[in-house]
């Protein structure tokens, strides 16, 4: 096998060599995403992502966690420039020192080659009428690599993603693969352009529980071996606990809390994180019954005033209804957007 060398020789790499920059690989700074209301009048928009900030340092895995409607997927899609039509953005996405949200961004050089994405449902995300091998190798073929070389690279990529007998299986179609194999093929596809950041949107949600753990382990090992950065979008706290170095907890389009994954899950600094952790059996509590989160999640379309979490929050008082809490550092590396973070967080 050709190992990691295959991806290192990518011709596009020379053209997009890292410009010297300080700071993290990706800095999300006050990101705002507005979507048109589905059945609203023209100009009527919903702010699905509202001032989100966090960093993704090179080689680390950041877990982006939240319930549906928290804006986590929209945040990830904006990083690769694949937001739905008519979406408008604000703030900054600083990628290697350059803001991706500027109109002159050449997304075609970024996508696949620098930032790539793994989608939730691998069956839907793979083209049903093209063989796995062609789909995985497409980005290399389009970059003008010779056929034999692309073939070797595809076999190597599938092999590293844990697809057995890749020389034969590369000629299969997606429907001939099992769910887990499809997601492995999808991972191989995402790695083909040797990106530095991998976005994974609920990569295990559509899979069987037994397969989920294997795919997570694979992502973790590939991320470590290749020094990739990964932004892992999930609603599943256990996934974050297994894989992430850092975690960003989102609620109704805003960041509730962020910090090192283990610390945040063990000792939350936001009542929402605490409730979320308590609702998952055996992550935080040893009790047999988990406490479900009271109420239903706020959505960006009908976001409560002040702190969006206040209708469900046991600590809520008048200030929470009136004033949107700003994220502040409650301990080194620990950021919480709660007026009363100190009442939750015990250093």
């Amino acid at each position: 096998m050709m190992g990691g060398r295959v991806t290192a020789q990518h011709p596009d790499k020379s053209g997009t060599a890292d410009p010297p920059h300080d700071g993290p690989l990706l800095r999300v700074e006050g990101l705002v995403v507005d979507l048109p209301r589905p059945d609203g009048a023209a100009g009527d928009t919903v702010r699905v992502v509202d001032g989100v900030s966090f960093d993704v340092p090179a080689g680390t895995t950041v877990g982006l966690i939240g319930e549906s409607g928290s804006g986590k997927t929209m945040t990830a899609l904006s990083v690769i420039g694949l937001l739905p039509d008519h979406a408008t953005t604000g703030g900054e996405l600083v990628w290697r020192g350059k803001n991706l949200l500027r109109p002159d961004t050449d997304w075609r050089r970024v996508r696949g080659h620098q930032i790539s994405m793994i989608f939730q449902d691998p069956l839907a995300a793979l083209n049903p009428s093209i063989t796995i091998g062609r789909q995985v190798g497409e980005i290399l073929r389009r970059a003008g690599r010779p056929r034999a070389e692309v073939r070797h690279a595809v076999i190597d990529l599938l092999d590293r993603a844990g697809v057995p007998d890749p020389e034969r299986r590369m000629n299969s179609y997606p429907h001939e693969f099992s769910g887990g194999l499809r997601q492995r093929a999808m991972i191989a596809l995402a790695l083909a352009g040797s990106p530095s950041l991998l976005l994974a949107d609920e990569p295990t949600t559509a899979l069987d529980v037994t397969v989920q753990a294997r795919i997570l382990r694979l992502l973790r090992s590939i991320q470590r071996e290749q020094g990739l950065a990964m932004l892992l979008v999930t609603h599943d706290l256990r996934v974050v606990a297994h894989v992430a170095d850092e975690v960003v907890v989102m609620y109704a389009g805003r960041v509730a809390e962020r910090g090192p994954a283990g610390a945040v899950l063990r000792r939350p600094a936001h009542p929402y994180t605490r409730a979320l952790a308590a609702s998952v059996p055996a992550v935080r509590t040893k009790t047999a019954l988990a406490d479900p989160l009271p109420g239903s999640p706020a959505t960006p379309a009908n976001r409560p005033s002040g702190c969006a979490f206040h209708p469900r929050c046991p600590l809520a008082r008048d200030r929470c209804k009136a004033e949107v809490p700003q994220a502040r550092e409650v301990a080194p590396g620990r950021w919480s957007a709660c007026h009363f973070a100190e009442e939750v967080f015990t250093p």
Binding site: R108, R109, R111, F119, A125, Q135, E138, I139
Partner: peptide
Amino acid sequence: PYVQTARSKGL
């Protein structure tokens, strides 16, 4: 969704 995947390859 596979069209989104194709776009994510930089096509």
